[in-house]
């Protein structure tokens, strides 16, 4: 097997290459190398951007965290500032693959709210939901690279749970991330994100709105779990049925919110 391979020296050069032809981009290679082994992308040249250190950084500025697209998952795990501000992100990252995969895999677009894209001479920035179109589909054009992802420091209560078929190196059946603040016995700024139960990661917005609408009670948690489950649109595959996935959204949202009962009590 032979393939054409180009390794640009900097982002400028990479973007120039992308303007001239279509490439498959090698960042961490954790997906691409498997696809190449399966015989896909036979005719496409490879653009290896993995060593472009300009895109590998974690910065904190004015209550915002900005992470370069080529920052590896292991980089995230060893970041002091993320450990302080966004443990929910690290909890999720810890669930991805193995140490070896995390050493190679990059943050790409995976978890953050705002995505910056660059093409030669121009950049655009958009919220993550606008960026994600479906499974493995984004608005990224063939002449663009992801520059970075950014997010505002999330509120204090953070919870992440992933359900897999075993305890490590498991593709997710379903996952849930929750962040919230507390004020006067209520949840404030609650965000409920659901993974693997819709074509893209989604937020359970009805459940979020309901949870902020009145002081938190155990019954409300169960109702919110039910709502979130209805907001999901899961499929059946070799790992689990759609029905089980839906149930698991309720289960995980319930578990994630349960400790909030104590926290809201203290905020009264």
């Amino acid at each position: 097997m032979s393939l054409e391979y180009i390794r640009p020296r900097n982002v400028e050069e990479a973007l120039e290459c992308l303007l001239s032809r279509t490439f498959k981009i090698l960042a961490g290679g954790t997906d691409l190398v498997i696809q190449l082994r399966e015989g896909r992308h036979k005719d496409l040249p490879i653009l290896d951007i993995s060593r472009l250190s300009e895109l590998r950084f974690i910065r904190e500025k004015d209550g915002k965290t900005v992470i370069g697209a080529l920052t590896t998952l292991s980089d995230l795990l060893s970041s002091e500032s993320l450990r302080r501000t966004a443990p929910v992100l690290l909890a999720a990252v810890r669930e991805i693959g193995s140490v070896q995969i995390r050493n190679m895999g990059t943050i790409g677009t995976r978890f953050c709210q705002i995505v910056s894209l660059g093409r030669k001479g121009r950049t655009r920035t958009m919220p993550l939901p606008d960026f994600l179109l479906g499974p493995c589909k984004t608005v990224l054009e063939s002449c663009e690279l992801i520059h970075s992802v950014s997010f505002s420091t999330p509120p204090v209560y953070q919870h992440f749970e992933k359900l897999g078929e075993r305890k490590a190196q498991a593709i997710s059946i379903a996952s849930t991330a929750l962040v919230s603040g507390f004020k006067n016995g209520r949840l404030k700024g609650i965000r409920v994100a659901l993974g693997s139960v819709a074509p893209t990661v989604i937020r359970a917005k009805q459940a979020e709105a309901f949870l902020e609408s009145r002081p938190l009670t155990p019954d409300m948690i169960l109702d919110a779990g039910e709502m979130a489950a209805q907001e999901a649109s899961p499929i059946s595959d070799v790992r689990a049925t759609a029905a089980y996935r839906r149930k698991m959204v309720m289960a995980m949202v319930t578990r994630g919110l349960w400790p909030c009962l104590k926290e809201v009590g203290e905020s009264r």
Partner: peptide, 23 residues
């Protein structure tokens, strides 16, 4: 083994689940 009409659907280490150290 998830076998559908005689075809094994989970024939990779990522889909045929065996225990790893944390299990």
């Amino acid at each position: 083994n998830v076998i559908q009409e005689g075809s094994v659907l989970n024939n990779k280490l990522s889909t045929y689940i065996i225990p790893t150290a944390p299990d």
